[in-house]
Amino acid sequence: MSSVAQQKKAVEQLRIECNMQRKPVSECVRDMVAYMEEHGSKDRLVLGFPNRKDNPYLEKSGCAIL
């Protein structure tokens, strides 16, 4: 591809990017916080397990009924 064609393509790409719709950061951040609050109750990495037994990866205690 010649350099003119390359440059044309780059300009096309920039035109597309210029014409996209944008939203203010404040609005985006508000939505992000809302998403976190909505899903936060299910996020075990944030809250941990309400009960230790709920963690399937916890080592079982030493005693077991045979």
């Binding site: 003119v4 440059q7 044309k8 780059a10 300009v11 920039l14 035109r15 990017e17 210029c18 944008r22 939203k23 203010p24 950061v25 404040s26």
Partner: peptide, 21 residues
């Protein structure tokens, strides 16, 4: 074309920073 690209980049930068409220 490079002039246009420069203008577009500047516009892009400006629009992006305007919304950084």
């Amino acid at each position: 074309l490079s002039r246009e690209a420069e203008t577009l980049k500047a516009r892009l930068e400006q629009e992006r920073s305007q919304l950084n409220d």
